[in-house]
Design a protein around this nucleic acid. Structure first.
Lengths: 120, 120
DNA sequence: TGACTATATGAGGAGTTTCTCATGTTGTCA
DNA sequence: TGACAACATGAGAAACTCCTCATATAGTCA
């Protein structure tokens, strides 16, 4: 009952298809972190974060190691960051194609009065 | 109201998180195709395929061009194939890590009586 | 124009995911 | 041992996604 490749791939992408899970990976790019270190950056309620981490863990994308009373999470395979980078590239390229989003970016740059750093 | 990067990324991966949509991209790797050319390979009922194509279109991952009575679909940015390849690599590496799946692969190789080529 | 082909859109049930709240487990430290 | 901290798990409502079926639109060709 081995699944066809495209199903495994789709499942894999699905696992990445959640803002909090992406956020976790972005933070882990800076090195291993405990759950309580992740929490403020990801900004989820503790149990919810735990659930999202469990999704990433079950997919084999991150791994946890107990250290005293904390669990230290880290990515299993640094290639994941390459994937995130290619995705970013694709998004940038694609933004240049869709007029409205480009316009939005434009307006961000051309209005010096706006707090540009206020996102996030 | 610009979305934070991790939301856009998550949305992007979500778009890839469906077997049929991955399948479409795999077929389009061989060059542009009309909907009716895609259909047998993807194996969805026509209207369902149309809906999935619309998801990919709205995400800017594929584009359609009318040619007579057919729509010819193609990928917008060939970098998407790089993404699919990195994903494949990650999956392969990750398979080597999870014992059960490796065992499954093993059993495929060690049973000569089985039709190995029967998938897909 | 009418019949036909190719593709798209909409509505709705079934299934899945997300998130909250309550509770469980495991480790630390006094 | 008991109290506390750090994390995980489970149940359930709300929101979303998938898929089917019915219908719509656009192009071709007689």
């Amino acid at each position: 009952m081995t699944k066809p490749i495209y199903e495994v791939k789709a499942q894999f992408f699905k696992t990445l298809g959640h803002p909090a899970r992406i956020r976790v990976l972005e933070v882990l790019a800076g090195g291993p972190r405990s759950v309580s270190e992740l929490q403020p950056d990801v900004g989820l309620e503790a149990s919810h974060l735990s659930q999202q981490l469990s999704v990433l863990r079950k997919a084999g994308i991150v791994q946890a190691e107990r250290q005293g009373s904390s669990q230290i999470y880290s990515v299993t395979d640094p290639q994941i960051f390459e994937l995130l980078n290619v995705a970013k590239q694709l998004i940038i390229t694609s933004l240049s194609g869709t007029e409205d989003m480009l316009a939005e970016l434009d307006s961000m740059n051309y209005q010096p009065g706006r707090k540009k750093g206020s996102k996030r």
